[in-house]
Write a protein that binds this DNA or RNA. Structure first.
Length: 325
DNA sequence: AACCACGCCAACCGCGTTTGA
DNA sequence: TTCAAACGCGGTTGGCGTGGT
């Protein structure tokens, strides 16, 4: 049984809303509320689908919406909640007054995902790429492990090359005190060398992660609490930080410590007790943590891997964390 | 000046869930 | 209890603006 459309598609206007339409919708809702979205366009004199009206109202016209840039605190909140909740945008948005799920989703997809990738962190699991590879490696039988580095390179190569070489090399070359009149071909050669170098570093790092699984730390290195752990690829001295107040987005992340109310301890380990989290959040986080404790399923748990002394793929974390967007 | 590539974001689409007759 | 209608959510798309060549 097919689902019937929510409205007559032939008779409805689509695409961008005009200010006149916005006015009609807003004034109608101000008078009558949002009881029945199917009737609203008819009664308001709009040739729009009720669903389209609802979206326009909830994502744009609602008077309590914020329309400006996301603040540092909001950004931190999104990243930390995403580490716990995944793509549950409506729940994440509910913790950010004035932001819609669409706002949060767009912000995540266009900004935050890239930031994390640029730091060598998988935006899905919130783990370092290198650690993910090592986890996979330890789970595979030896004959398959041998090919993992190549496969991983295939997966991550494009993005990592983009992040590690193109933008950064461009930046560095512009910043460098290259002698006046350095030829374009010199620049290109430098770029090419850097790229090859980065590929080789990634290759080495992954190979080591695979060949030396015993270097894996006994506990999750990204958890704020726990024994100091060596990064299995490179030195990670002084990690994790002794104090739990570190921020998700370290200094290289573009923040200077904004005093976000969210504290990693809220979602570290099995206890996520954020007192200021509202609505469905508490239950959901408990649910997530329960699943994690049962099946060792990773739910992010704070993603506290941002130590400038950490080295991913033999690249200093400082490099990875430099703003590149 | 023209073209192209890319990023951003508003809007759409389809599916799962909830509601109410 | 069942089922159609409405609602809500997350993924995807398309258009616009901007910067680079």
């Amino acid at each position: 049984m097919g689902r019937i459309p929510c409205c007559e598609k032939d008779n409805v206007k689509r695409g961008q809303w005009t200010p006149e339409e916005d006015n009609k919708l807003a004034s109608y809702i101000a008078q009558h509320g949002t009881r029945n979205w199917r009737l609203i366009p008819k009664n308001a004199g709009l040739q729009r689908c009720g669903k389209s009206c609802r979206l326009r109202w909830t994502n744009y016209l609602r008077p309590d919406l914020k329309h400006g840039e996301f603040s540092e605190a909001e950004e931190q909140t999104i990243m930390r909640l995403h580490a716990v909740l995944g793509n549950r945008w409506s729940i994440i948005a509910a913790q950010l007054p004035g932001r819609t799920d669409n706002d949060v989703k767009n912000y995540w997809n266009t900004k935050l995902k890239k930031k994390l990738s640029g730091m060598g962190i998988d935006p899905v699991t919130h783990k370092p790429f290198s650690h993910l590879m090592a986890e996979i490696a330890t789970a595979l039988p030896p004959p398959h492990v041998a090919h993992l580095a190549e496969a991983a390179l295939g997966c991550f190569k494009d993005e990592m090359l983009h992040l590690l070489t193109k933008k950064r090399v461009d930046f560095q070359l512009h910043q460098s005190s290259a002698p006046q009149g350095a030829s374009t071909s010199t620049s290109l050669t430098a770029k090419s060398d850097e790229k090859e170098d980065a590929v080789e570093k990634i290759r080495l790092g992954l190979s080591r992660a695979i060949l030396e699984p015993d270097m894996l730390p006994p506990s999750k290195p990204w958890e704020p609490m726990g024994a100091p752990a060596m990064n299995f690829i490179g030195a990670c001295s002084g990690f994790p930080p002794s104090a739990p107040e570190f921020q998700y987005g370290h200094s290289g992340f573009g923040d200077e410590g904004d005093g976000s109310p969210w504290n990693p301890s809220m979602c570290a380990g099995g206890a996520c007790t954020a007192g200021n989290q509202r609505g469905r959040l508490d239950g959901i986080i408990e649910e997530e943590n329960g699943e994690e404790s049962k099946g060792e399923k990773d739910s992010g748990s704070g993603s506290s891997i941002f130590n400038p002394d950490c080295v991913l793929w033999d690249l200093p974390a400082d490099d990875l964390m430099n703003p590149i967007m």
